[in-house]
């Protein structure tokens, strides 16, 4: 008898997903097959593949490669930083304190934090002034408005998303396994590589998905502190949507981006079967966020 109410319980979620995920995505897909209204921009409700053929363009291809490259470099840096951090946190007596430290940045708005970084890295910023006052530099160093600044800020922004899933897997790891490996003749490094890493693979997978996807869909960071060399797909979409007003093109690019990311995630998960269902669910949520951001 109790089972009868089952479908009722999922109704709120169904409504939520339909309203905020399925419908917007459908609109984007629909718009991508429409014709661009000339001159003023917007759409004419008339079928066209023009928006897709326009994507076959060396410039867009180059930007896509660049986006992929920046996302990859950022992800590698984040994982490399997050594993030792999460390991230390999990073994520390002050776990909860460190968790709090990781979460604290979320209490401040994302854009405000980026502007804070500009105050630090700017030509007349804190860092340049500090370096000049101790006589290390004569003129300022150009920290901002290049691809390195984009990578730095991407790493800064999404690092907690790498630390948290890694922390939760490492915390469950049985550290006596490392002692067993040492006991059986492994050096500290071998024990880490052959025992720790395979056993926290689920956490690494989740961390990669959580960081790569938002880094790939990056828009605000390159917009504010990037230059032409760090122009990313997210920026193209935003420009086509707001400046050029080529809505079909913005939509087709979003559709391709979302499809590629989804395929990539599925492929990646296939290679990492140990990734838990929980990780998959969280990855789907992250992907949804990314899809929405690209759509906005």
């Amino acid at each position: 008898m109790r089972k009868k109410y089952g479908p009722l319980y999922v109704t709120p979620l169904t409504v939520w997903l339909a309203a905020f995920f399925v419908i917007p995505i459908s609109i984007i897909v629909y718009y991508s097959f429409l014709t661009k209204r000339p001159a003023t921009g917007g759409v004419i409700h008339q079928f066209s593949l023009e928006a897709y053929t326009a994507l076959i363009n060396p410039l867009i291809f180059r930007i896509a490669l660049n986006t992929f490259w920046v996302a990859c470099v950022s992800t590698v840096i984040m994982i490399a930083l997050a594993i030792p951090t999460a390991y230390y946190m999990a073994r520390s007596k002050y776990k909860n304190f460190f968790l709090l430290l990781v979460i604290i940045p979320f209490l401040t708005n994302f854009l405000i934090r980026i502007y804070a970084w500009m105050a630090i890295l700017g030509n007349n910023g804190i860092l340049n002034n500090a370096l000049a006052s101790i006589g290390l530099i004569d003129s300022h160093i150009q920290f901002l408005y290049n691809v390195n600044a984009v990578i730095l800020l991407t790493v800064y922004t999404y690092l907690p998303f790498a630390i948290l899933p890694l922390y939760s897997t490492i915390e469950k790891f049985d550290f006596s396994l490392l002692e067993a490996a040492r006991d059986l003749g492994a050096t500290k490094l071998t024990a880490m590589l052959r025992i720790l890493f395979p056993n926290i693979r689920a956490g690494i997978t989740t961390a990669v998905l959580f960081t790569f996807i938002p880094a790939f869909g990056n828009y605000a960071i390159p917009q504010i502190i990037g230059d032409a060399g760090s122009y990313m797909l997210g920026n193209v979409i935003a420009r086509e949507l707001t400046v050029t007003r080529n809505w079909p093109l913005a939509s087709s690019l979003s559709v391709v981006l979302t499809t590629l990311t989804t395929l990539g995630v599925l492929l990646f998960m296939r290679f990492n079967r140990s990734a838990t269902e929980g990780a998959a669910a969280m990855a789907a949520a992250a992907k949804r966020r990314q899809g929405m951001r690209a759509a906005i």
């Binding site: 049985d174 396994l177 025992i195």
Partner: peptide, 10 residues
């Protein structure tokens, strides 16, 4: 070599 209380099998 050691045999651990929890066996510590990989």
């Amino acid at each position: 070599n050691t045999i651990f209380q929890t066996y510590a099998l990989f």
